[in-house]
Design a protein around this nucleic acid. Structure first.
Lengths: 207, 207
DNA sequence: TTGCGATACGAATGAGCGTTAGCTAGCCTC
DNA sequence: GAGGCTAGCTAACGCTCATTCGTATCGCAA
């Protein structure tokens, strides 16, 4: 058999962690999409050959699943801590839309992947994910319905306002640039105000 | 040489047009994404073998390009006819957002593909497309800036309001269902009202 | 110093992809 | 009825991809 094993010089060997793989995957999935990204690109980004990735992951699918899981959990957690203790629908909507907008300015890659490549998840995880997103959607819609009932919001169809607010925030991930003129928190603040306007908030609209 | 050519019975042969190919591609690209869709799926949807598609198209890329071209042209044309002759910023924004929202409720597949798979376009067409989208974006932003100057709109950053309005409308394509409770024109009308609210329209906000 | 676990590597595999080539059946026109 | 155009088909090519296997190396602990 052949015995020649040329072996790269010791200093050229890279070493890599699971988190590094996940982070590189996140960047590339966000740019090219799940199906548009090859494992070889992830490996190249880390200075490693493709098969070496398998020391840090089980499969390409699992990378996507990890990204999606981690992100949707974060969204729900954000929502809980943002609305916990608040009873006024106006304050609840202000706070919920603020953290949601902020997350999409500060976690752009995650947002893009989750919103674009959900369909590439294998079952049953795709359905699980959709359920968790629906949970957030219904929670937001409930705030609006409560506000309408309390007379502080004015919308014909709460579901429409809820969709509009959510997707408006999600889209921040698509245009926001870290080196742009506005920092994330100021963008989030303005978007939070947009959210109250969409809901037809009759109070406090100048804040 | 082999001469056996089993030949399917005459009635099992399908016949297909360029438009049918484009339409099937549209459906599948919208569902699975450009990279997530195989030509074999398009062929199967049409009841035809994969190579037969090449009688009606030049390449997979060309399919995407056609879809994107046609759609962005439509958006710009919509905008022109919707705002032509209107000078009041309020009416211009109302009309522009109405047709934009309506288009995304009635041309869902196109919207999804254009917004998700733009990145899969080869150069130079990707840059061309982005330029045309920017054209629409700037036109909308100009309406808002005009309205702010005229004192009928109130926003801190017109660009943010413009992004919010556009992406809110785009997202209709993601949740709208034809068999849902609201017809496209009613959804568009409510979204048009949301757009005026985002802009901080001080007039006529109950209409 | 030795041994072991973690991790990188090259080589290979099998599947699926977009695309091309060459052939053939059906339809329209003459 | 003959001939040609249209549009289908099978076969095959070359490429890329995700994944597996066996091996070599490195760093650390005994």
């Amino acid at each position: 058999m052949v015995k020649v094993t040329p072996v790269p010089a010791a200093e050229t060997r890279a070493t890599v962690t699971s988190d590094a793989v996940l982070d590189a995957a996140l960047t590339l999935f966000a740019r090219f999409g799940y199906h548009g990204t090859a494992l070889s690109q992830i490996a190249e980004m880390l200075g490693v050959r493709t098969p070496s990735l398998y020391n840090h992951m089980r499969s390409k699918q699992e990378l996507l699943r990890s990204i999606v899981d981690r992100t949707t959990s974060g969204v729900l957690a954000d929502f809980q801590t943002a609305t916990d203790g608040l009873t006024d629908p106006v304050e609840r909507l202000r706070s919920a839309s603020l953290v949601y907008a902020l997350r999409h300015a500060t976690h752009r890659r995650e947002a893009i992947v989750v919103n674009r490549d959900t369909a590439s998840l294998d079952e049953p995880h795709r359905t699980e994910l959709q359920d968790r997103r629906r949970e957030h959607e219904h929670a937001l819609r409930q705030i609006i319905s409560d506000g309408v009932e309390a007379g502080v919001f004015q919308v014909d169809t709460p579901a429409l306002a809820s969709f509009a607010i959510r997707e408006m925030c999600v889209s921040i991930a698509r245009w926001f640039r870290e080196d742009g003129p506005l920092p994330p928190d100021q963008v989030a603040e303005q978007y939070s105000r947009f959210a109250l306007r969409i809901a037809g908030c009759t109070r406090d609209s100048a804040t």
